[in-house]
Nucleic acid binder design. Structure first.
Length: 272
DNA sequence: GCGAGGCCCACCAGTATCAC
DNA sequence: GTGATACTGGTGGGCCTCGC
């Protein structure tokens, strides 16, 4: 087991005690990475989430959660609220606290960051405290930036772009252009030129989300701007982006952010 | 009374898993 | 890698509550 503490957070790698009985919650953002096989986490308000190999999850401050299962190794970084908020401000993101979506994601740059950190800490020799402090100063800033860039959340209006195989790239472009249309798995598979089983499998492997879930999350992110800056009804906003009724929109919003669209709108206006 | 939003439930499309 | 199938979760519609 290895725990490295730093003024901006904490890094933890362990191969024992991979399940937790107790609910946890504190004031930091948590970056959780699944390096070997499946990991399952549970949030008190948002249900369970499964991470496959190289998928990550970001938990917001004060989210009550516990880890149900981890394969072989737990990799977790706590990033202090103040660092992430400062980075978000410097990047000119919306003037509210970033809230990350409760979804599994995959990103090559974050996978590389984790891999580099593991190599560094597994092979360091006689590193002085000053050296380690300096290394972590920069590493935590890098992670905070990557989280804001590639973690899905309220600070974004579209899903972060990632490098995809060309067979998926065309489908994702079409979904982005026509997100308000009705799509079926068959439509997407035909566009990709593969059968729907292959397509669904590949899509999940590359993005961390199933095709339909990806589209729903994309639609949901699109609605955030309307919720913040207009007085349009929740119903009309939901219909605008392609949801067919308000109840499915409400359900998804609550599962992803732990609050309803009207609560989201209210919290933004309170903090403005 | 009316409209907006939330909750509940049955149905079915989409997803995960397993066998080949 | 592909296809079948059991399971999951999104959808649609009815009903309830709340505020105007």
């Amino acid at each position: 087991m290895m725990i490295v503490e730093h003024q901006n957070g904490l890094l933890l790698m362990r191969n024992d005690h991979l399940g937790e009985r107790n609910w946890r919650s504190d004031d930091s953002y948590k970056f959780i990475f699944s390096g070997y096989g499946k990991s399952v986490f549970q949030s008190r308000n948002q249900g369970d989430i499964t991470l496959d190999t190289n998928h990550f999850l970001i938990l917001n401050p004060k989210i009550e959660h516990k880890q149900l299962h981890v394969t072989d190794e737990k990799f977790l970084v706590e990033v202090n609220y103040s660092l992430l908020k400062e980075m978000a401000d410097q990047l000119g993101m919306v003037p509210i606290d970033p809230e990350f979506a409760f979804v599994a994601s995959k990103n090559q740059q974050l996978s590389s960051w984790v891999s580099f950190m593991k190599t560094y800490f597994n092979h360091r020799v006689d590193t002085s405290l000053n050296t380690q402090e300096l290394f972590l100063d920069n590493s935590m800033i890098q992670l905070a930036l990557l989280m804001l860039q590639y973690g899905t959340g309220t600070h974004q209006q579209v899903l972060p772009s990632i490098h995809l195989p060309s067979v998926l790239e065309d489908v994702v472009d079409a979904l982005k252009q026509s997100y308000d249309m009705e799509w079926t798995l068959d439509d997407m598979a035909i566009l990709a030129g593969v059968n729907k089983y292959q397509f669904a499998h590949l899509f999940k492997k590359e993005t961390g989300l199933s095709p339909y879930s990806w589209l729903q999350i994309y639609r949901l992110l699109k609605t955030q701007e309307w919720l913040r800056y207009t007085d349009d009804s929740i119903l009309s906003i939901a219909l605008k982006v392609g949801f067919r009724n308000i109840s499915s929109y409400n359900q998804l919003f609550k599962r992803v952010y732990g609050k309803t669209p009207s609560e989201f709108r209210l919290s933004y206006r309170k903090n403005r």
